[in-house]
Structures are given as C-alpha cells and as structure tokens.
C-alpha cells in the first residue's frame, strides 16, 4: 500500500505542485498527467526516494519510505527518463548486469525470453549504441518482464515506442495489477489498459 499525503514540490524558486495526496492499494494503478514542466518527473523521483519531498509524507505499508530504505527499494522498479543502459554493452548484457547488481541474477534464456516478449529478439546481441531510440526504450522496459517487484514507477514509458510495443507494455501493466501489484505511471499518450486506473492531473 502506497500512501502519499500533502506532497509539495519546490524546484529552486518555482512551486511546481502543492498538496498532492493519493492512496494506492494492492492491484491499483495511478496515471499522472500534466503539462511539460508541471513536475511529473519530480513527483516520481520523490516516490522512489531519490528526491526528498519539500513537504508531506510518503508511506509504504504504513511506514515512511525514508525509514524503510533498502526494504522499500527491494520492492520497487523505476524506469526513468535516462534509460540506465550502457551504450557499449548489448541488450542481454545490460539486463543481466542490472539484474546481478540488484542481487537477482537471471539466466540468459530468461533475458532472451523477456526481450522476445517486447519484440527485440533480433538485436539482443548488438551493442545498445547501435539501436534506435525506441529499441533502447524497449530494452529498458524488458525489465518489467524480469522482475517480481510490487511497485512499478514508470516515467513516460511509451516515449518513442510504436503501437505494438505500447500494447505489450500496457499488457504487462495489466498483468502486474491483476497479480496484486501497484503501478504509478506518467504519460502523454493513451494507454490501452484493461484495468481501470485512477487518474490525476498535476500542475495548474
């Protein structure tokens, strides 16, 4: 259960948003919309614990995330704007190295399977440098099929993706919510989701 109350965001002199509150229980998702620069990414970075909130609290299972630390991060999957991929490694090497670093080493076959599900089987062994923007985004999103994390925080997951890949992502989110997971997503596109999501608009 993720509970956010009275969150404020101040960047430098600007007040980005004020009094943001929501509650997500198991199996629920939240879609955040808002104009460019309205603070969507800042909100997500607060949710994952990278930026401390200016005011307000974020609780995970009734405890402050700041106090939970590693226990919270173990249940968290964050896909941010920078993709977190190494240019000179291949898609499989990237995914395997990320998985090992978070102490969830995966077999090569599992990684290949995840890449196949997001439609990248052909370019799995090329260095990520040689892939297109959309393909890179797919590599990064293949993590959705690899992890068993409870809370997904996705920042504009559909950027640069084609229709088919967007559907794969939407299906993954649906399945995650059906399994009792929680998802917080920002997007400008329409996500073809089967599950009903709460929506919230931030900014003026």
């Amino acid at each position: 259960m993720l509970e956010v109350s009275n969150l404020d965001c101040v960047r430098g002199e600007r007040h980005l948003f004020h009094d943001v509150s929501f509650l997500l229980r198991s199996g629920e998702g939240l879609l955040i919309t808002g104009e460019n620069g309205s603070g969507k990414t800042s909100l997500l970075r607060m949710l994952v614990g990278l930026t401390p909130p200016f005011a307000g609290t974020i609780n995970w299972k009734t405890r402050l995330i700041k106090h939970l630390g590693a226990e919270y991060r173990r249940e968290l999957l964050y896909c941010g704007h920078p993709l977190g991929l190494k240019d000179s490694l291949s898609a499989t090497e990237n995914l395997q190295s990320i998985a090992s670093l978070v102490n969830e080493p995966v077999e090569l076959s599992v990684v290949q399977d995840a890449l196949e599900r997001i439609g990248l089987q052909g370019s799995a062994h090329m260095p990520v440098r040689a892939l297109s923007q959309g393909q890179k985004r797919r590599v990064s999103l293949a993590r959705l099929f690899l992890s068993r994390r409870t809370l997904w925080v996705l920042d504009e997951p559909l950027t640069a993706l084609d229709t088919k890949a967007s559907q794969h992502v939407a299906q993954a989110v649906d399945r995650h919510l059906d399994d009792g997971g929680i998802a917080v997503i920002t997007t400008h596109q329409d996500m073809a989701l089967a599950s009903p999501l709460q929506t919230m608009r931030i900014g003026a």
Binding site: V48, G49, L50, A70, E71, R73, R74, L76, Y78, G80, H81, P82, L83, G84, L85, K86, D87, I98, L101, V102, N103
Partner: peptide, 19 residues
C-alpha cells in the same frame, strides 16, 4: 550519471556505498 545507471544503482537494494 548521464545515462541513468547511477540512479538505478542508487535505487538498488544493495547499499550505494558498496557500489
């Protein structure tokens, strides 16, 4: 820092100091 790997490391359950 530029390619976002650092924030993924910071969000990993392993201690950042170990990284």
């Amino acid at each position: 820092y530029a390619d976002g790997t650092l924030e993924q490391l910071a969000l990993s359950p392993a201690p950042l100091s170990a990284m």
